[in-house]
Design a protein around this nucleic acid. Structure first.
Lengths: 338, 338
DNA sequence: TTGTACGCGTTATCAA
DNA sequence: TTGATAACGCGTACAA
C-alpha cells in the first residue's frame, strides 16, 4: 500500500502535486509533471487509503442498508426471495453510482443506529422498520434516509418512503375473486401492521364495496416460527372448508398454504381458490401456478437507492414514492357459482 | 458525533485518559476518574469514529463478501435462495465477531479486486470464483482469503476453501435411485465446471459402480437465461421419455423441471422421477415434495466466516473444509420395475 | 506551477 | 495516575 507521501518523495515533488494529479485538477499542474506522476501512479497501482480520505473529508461513500428482522421471523428473513431481490436492486444501483453498500441485519433498532453512526454512512436505506423506528433513527442522525415499505404518516416528515400501493393490490385481487363468484373469502397473514394492514384494508374495502360482510373469523392467522408453523397450518386447513377462496398476504404464505392443503387432500383450485401477493419464484414454479398480485421488487430497491443518491446530491425528492401493482392470473383460482 | 477530544475538554482531562477508559485499560486509571468518564460516555452516547480508528491502527474491521456472478446468470444470482442463505450465515457471523460486512457483486474479477484494495478489507470471502480467479486475487492482496465452493487444487495453496462433498452427494442419491429400480437416469445441469463437475462425477461414479453405461446423451443441458429457458425446457421434456429418472444439479432446476413436466402432462413421480440437490424452500414447498440432497448452506456461510476470523487472529486453519450431505427422501421419486 | 502546514479522530509512546 | 504529543494518510488553504 503505497502512500501519496511516498510517491512524492520518490518523484521529488510535493504531496499536493501528486494529489492534484490524482484528482484531475489539471489546471493546477504542468502537463509534464502530470504525465510523470500519472505514469508512476499506474506503475505502482496506487489505491488511496479510504480511511484517511473519509476522515479528512468527513464522508464515507458508504450507504448502509439496514434490514430490521422481526424476532420471530429472523431465521427466514434473508431466505425470503423478496429480501434477496431487494438487496440485489439496491446493491447494483449503489455500486454503479460509485458508492459502497454495507449490509446490516438486526432485530434491534438501537444496534442498527450504533452501526450507522460508527461508520458515518452518508445515507441510509431502511427496511422492516416499524412506524416510529425510522423517526427515531432520523432524528438522531441528520443523514438522508429512505425507508422501504414503511407505513407512517408522521414518518414522511422525516424521511422518504418507497412503497407499493398495497391496498390497491389486494383490492384488485379480491375484486377479481368476487368476479369469479367467490363470496366467502378469507384473508391470511401473520400480523396486521404496516404492509399487512394496508393489504388487509384493500381486502376489506373490496368486500365492503361488494356488500359482503367481514367478520373477525375471516382473518386466518399464520404463525411463522418453525415450531408453530405446522400447528397453525393445521388450524387453518381445518377452517378452510368455511371459505371458497383465501387471499394470502404473500406468495410465500400462499405456497406454504397450498402445500399444506394438498397434503390434507384439499385440492387447489377445485376445492378452494388461493391468491397470493408479490409474484416471486415460489408462486411461479408451484403447480397449480399461483394467481397473484405482482410487484417489481428489484425496481423497489433501485428506486430506493436512486432516491437516496439524489438526496445526497442535494436534489429534492418527493417524500413518498408508490409503485403500482398488477394482477397476474394463473391457475390457483377457480370460478365458482355465486 | 461527539469526539474524544471534545469529551476530554468538557471533563478537563486529557484524551489519553478518556481513551484508556473507553478501552478498559483500567489498570492505568483511578476508579474515580474512570467512573466520571464512564458516566459521561453513557450520557452523551459516544460512538468512536471508525475511520479514525482504522487509520490509526491500519486495519479496517471490514470483511468483504464478493460474489462473482456468471454473466448469464447475473439477473438470477441474488434471487437464488442459496445465495441469500449464504449471505445470511456470513453476515451474522461477521457481525457477532465485531466486524463489518461489505457486500460486492460483480461478474468482473478485476472490478472485485479494485474494490477489495480500495477498502483495505481485513479479509475476503469469495463465492462464485472460477478456478484461477481466487489465485489472482490472493496473489495481489496478501490478506486472508476464504473461498466458498471453489474447485481448484492449485488454489488451495493460496487460500482456504469451504465446500461440500458434492460428489458424495450425487453418488448417494443416484445409488438411491438405482435402489428404487431406476436404470435410465439423466443428469441435468447448465455447465460442467466446479461444483457441477463434482456432482456430475458422483452421478457417473454411481452409474459405473452399478454397471450402467453413461453416454453423452444422458446429460441434459438447461439454459438459464430467461430468453432461452423455455426452449431448453421444451427440448428436455421431449427427451424425458427416454429416462425414468432425472438427477438435477440443484433444487431450483429440479423444481423448474417439475413445473415444466407438469405443464406438459407428464406426471412426477408416476411418469418420471426427479431428484434435486441443495434442499431449499423451493423443493420443500413444491408438491410432490422434492427428494433431494441436503446441504446446510447457512452453516457453510458461518464456517467460511469463522475460518476467516480465525485466520485474522493468526490461528492456523486447514486449507480445505468439506461439509457433509444427507439424503432427504420425499415424494418426487417412485419405485420402478428394474 | 509547486510546496508547506494543518486538520480530521484515534491510538500509542513517553514524560511528568 | 495522568497528560502532552506524535503518528496514521489524505485533502486543501495558503504561501511561495
Amino acid at each position: 500500500m503505497i502512500t501519496i507521501k511516498e510517491i512524492a518523495k520518490q518523484l521529488n515533488m510535493s504531496t499536493t502535486t501528486v494529489s492534484n494529479v490524482i484528482h484531475g485538477k489539471t489546471g493546477e499542474v504542468s502537463d509534464e509533471t502530470k504525465k510523470i506522476v500519472q505514469d508512476f501512479l499506474d506503475k505502482v497501482d496506487y489505491v488511496p487509503n479510504i480511511n484517511a480520505r473519509n476522515l479528512a473529508q468527513n464522508e464515507s461513500k458508504i450507504i448502509g442498508l439496514a434490514l430490521k428482522a422481526r424476532a420471530d421471523k429472523y431465521e427466514n428473513l434473508i431466505m425470503d426471495p423478496f429480501v434477496s431481490e431487494l438487496i440485489g436492486g439496491v446493491e447494483e444501483t449503489i455500486r454503479n453510482a460509485g458508492y459502497f453498500m454495507m449490509l446490516y441485519i438486526s432485530s434491534d433498532t438501537v444496534e442498527i443506529m450504533r452501526h450507522v453512526s460508527t461508520w458515518n454512512v452518508d445515507g441510509l436505506i431502511l427496511f422492516g422498520m416499524l412506524n416510529d423506528d425510522g423517526i427515531r433513527v432520523s432524528e438522531k442522525y441528520k443523514k438522508p434516509i429512505v425507508c422501504i415499505d414503511t407505513y407512517s404518516i408522521e414518518g414522511l416528515k422525516h424521511f422518504t418512503n418507497v412503497g407499493l400501493d398495497d391496498e390497491q393490490g389486494t383490492y384488485d385481487m379480491v375484486n377479481y375473486l368476487i368476479s369469479q363468484g367467490h363470496r366467502k373469502i378469507a384473508f391470511l397473514s401473520d400480523n396486521t401492521n404496516g404492509v399487512d394492514f394496508a393489504r388487509l384494508s384493500g381486502y376489506k374495502k373490496a368486500l365492503s364495496d361488494a356488500g359482503i360482510k367481514y367478520s373477525e373469523a375471516d382473518f386466518l392467522k399464520i404463525r411463522p416460527r418453525s415450531e408453530d408453523l405446522e400447528d397453525s397450518l393445521n388450524e387453518i386447513c381445518k377452517r378452510a372448508k368455511d371459505f371458497t377462496a383465501i387471499m394470502c398476504v404473500s406468495d410465500l404464505y400462499a405456497v406454504t398454504l397450498m402445500a399444506a392443503l394438498t397434503d390434507r387432500g384439499i385440492r387447489v383450485p377445485e376445492d378452494i381458490s388461493i391468491a397470493g401477493f408479490d409474484d416471486n419464484m415460489l408462486g411461479q414454479l408451484h403447480r397449480p401456478a399461483l394467481t397473484t398480485v405482482h410487484q417489481d421488487v428489484k425496481k423497489k430497491g433501485i428506486l430506493a437507492a436512486d432516491t437516496l443518491l439524489k438526496q445526497l446530491r442535494g436534489e429534492k425528492t418527493p417524500n413518498q414514492l408508490l409503485l403500482p401493482t398488477r394482477l397476474i392470473i394463473r391457475d390457483s383460482v377457480a370460478k365458482v357459482d355465486g
